[in-house]
Amino acid sequence: MMQSSELTTKAKEYLRIAKVDLVIGYLEGTTKDRRRAGFIRSAEEADNLVLDERCEDNLAVYLVKENLLARYKKVAIFLNPAGIRTINVLASEEQIEADKIVILGFEITGGDVRILDGESVDDFSELIAQLKLKAFDSEQMADVDEIDSLDVDKRFEYWRGEFSKCIKCYACRQACPMCYCNRCIVECNQPQWICRSAHTLGNFEWNIVRAFHLAGRCVGCGNCERACPVDIPLMKINRKLGKEVLDRFDYFVGSSKDQQAVLTSFKQDDPQEFIL
């Protein structure tokens, strides 16, 4: 606990000396198990900040909502490693200016909070390089492998069952920092690309499109899965695609802010065996 209070004290200090004019952090929630995003503008308010093992949500989603960054000079934000990688992706996709962000980095391991050294996103390159080495190991992929081992019919049945629950509330999209489009493809109707209805076909279309748009962009923060009100295991899809781009292209999403998107860049040594 000593450590986590160091970080909230730091946030307070940044506001006091006007190093930043906004802190996005965690506050206590409606119940004792819940934590919620807080937007803190003064050192006094910063006393309400909390940081503990329940602070799971990737707050970077707020950096791309309603042009938030345009209203502040500099923003400090509590981020875990997936959140830090989010900054790299958003910067490389030119959605945010990385130098406007002061990172208050932390990591939750086994119920403990560990404070991460660094402040600008580049300070965490080594940490991210280390994460890449153990990304998508067999333990993390056990549930995905289980589905992969099924026959195609069974796999289809599994996902049909899961997607049929979808009510198209788009909580997965709204909770995702990478889903920043002002107008999502499901909202385009001239022509209508995606079925709007929440029937099984429409749900397949939505969930597959969502997965494809996140391939090589998802940092695995888990916001989508936590937000889903009907418990669709979206992270199984995200991890599957994440492992695919790592294995095929040696690409770990959000490694640096200059990283080019894997699906829109070409390298001479990219695997090309699919070309007939």
């Binding site: 919620r36 995003a37 807080g38 937007f39 989603v61 707020y62 909502k65 009510i167 198209k168 509330c169 788009y170 909580a171 999209r173 709204q174 909770a175 709007r196 937000a227 009100p229």
Partner: peptide, 20 residues
């Protein structure tokens, strides 16, 4: 401020009835 603009509250509401 922290509303992310999803439809969870409306779709799980026993009275919300808007449709398209």
């Amino acid at each position: 401020q922290r509303c992310i603009g999803c439809g969870v509250c409306t779709y799980l509401c026993p009275t919300c009835h808007c449709f398209d």
